[in-house]
Amino acid sequence: MDTEALKAIASYREAFPHITPLITDWSAHEDQGGDSFHAVKETAGILAATDSTIPLRYKHADATDPKVLAWIDEVVWCSTPARISGVRKVGPGPSLLLLGPTGTGKTFQGYGALRRLSVLGVNASPAASPIADIYAKMRPRPGVDSESVFESYAHAPLLFVDDLGAAKESPWVEEVTTRLVNYRYDRGMATIFTSNVPPKQLGEKIGERVASRLTELCRVVVLKGEDRRLQGRAA
């Protein structure tokens, strides 16, 4: 057994003691036909990779909304165990659209969902970014392969796109958004989207076709309440 990997796993799990991992006993996992050596290494890698994806401000984020927790359960149910280690990997499944005014906790819940999946021990290999940063990285300029940037997000097993609809509208922005949503829609790839845009205005802000795809693709959760930022909490 990899002692350093076990220590790393324990440190991540201790920060979220209320989350029960899918593999809690490595010896029992071995007895049930899993490869505990590879399971330990993969689990440590999952936790480290997810941690590197989550910004410092959201390192302690955890999903708490009942509908978000229900979505996580669906993602776990749709995941499949790896042939050797038995560690579960995210596969095709439902997506999540978090809507609500600024500061109601959408980003907190989104990063919390990524964290919870990692503590559970599900290999999501997530990518995460505000939509404005995706546009900025893709914007054509010398030395930048825009298509490779697009593919890095489009191909991610689990993608978190924050603040959809926040960027200034243009035909190019609409094209990128449509391509990204359609790519993941056509393949049933699990994606988390957040947006400050009111549900009834989503179509006019990001395009009716994209909004329709999102409605079909996603479990829609509307968050309400006071601005968490004004109360000193991450949002």
Results as ranks from 00 to 15, higher is better:
2 D>P: 14
3 T>D: 13
4 E>F: 09
11 S>D: 12
13 R>H: 12
15 A>K: 15
18 H>F: 03
20 T>I: 15
22 L>E: 14
25 D>L: 01
27 S>G: 07
27 S>W: 01
28 A>D: 13
28 A>F: 04
30 E>K: 12
34 G>K: 11
34 G>Y: 12
50 T>L: 03
54 I>G: 03
55 P>N: 02
56 L>W: 06
59 K>N: 06
63 A>E: 05
65 D>F: 05
67 K>S: 12
68 V>C: 08
68 V>D: 09
68 V>N: 05
70 A>G: 08
72 I>F: 11
75 V>C: 02
79 S>E: 01
83 R>V: 11
85 S>L: 06
85 S>Y: 12
86 G>L: 11
89 K>A: 08
95 S>Q: 06
98 L>G: 04
101 P>Y: 07
101 P>M: 01
102 T>Y: 06
103 G>E: 08
103 G>K: 10
104 T>D: 03
104 T>Y: 02
105 G>Q: 10
108 F>C: 07
112 G>K: 10
112 G>T: 06
112 G>Y: 05
114 L>T: 06
114 L>K: 00
114 L>M: 07
120 L>H: 01
121 G>T: 04
121 G>I: 02
121 G>V: 00
128 A>E: 00
129 S>F: 06
132 A>L: 08
132 A>S: 13
133 D>E: 14
133 D>A: 12
134 I>S: 11
135 Y>V: 11
135 Y>Q: 07
136 A>T: 12
137 K>N: 12
143 G>I: 09
144 V>F: 00
144 V>H: 06
147 E>P: 07
148 S>R: 15
150 F>T: 03
154 A>V: 00
156 A>I: 00
159 L>H: 01
159 L>I: 06
161 V>S: 02
164 L>S: 03
168 K>F: 09
168 K>I: 07
176 V>I: 15
176 V>E: 14
178 T>E: 13
181 V>W: 04
181 V>E: 05
181 V>I: 12
184 R>S: 08
185 Y>V: 03
195 S>D: 09
196 N>W: 04
196 N>T: 02
197 V>Y: 06
203 G>Y: 10
204 E>Q: 15
205 K>N: 08
206 I>C: 11
207 G>D: 05
218 C>S: 15
218 C>D: 08
222 V>Q: 14
222 V>Y: 03
227 D>G: 02
227 D>I: 06
227 D>Q: 06
229 R>H: 04
229 R>N: 01
230 L>N: 12
231 Q>H: 11
232 G>L: 03
232 G>A: 07
234 A>C: 00
235 A>E: 13
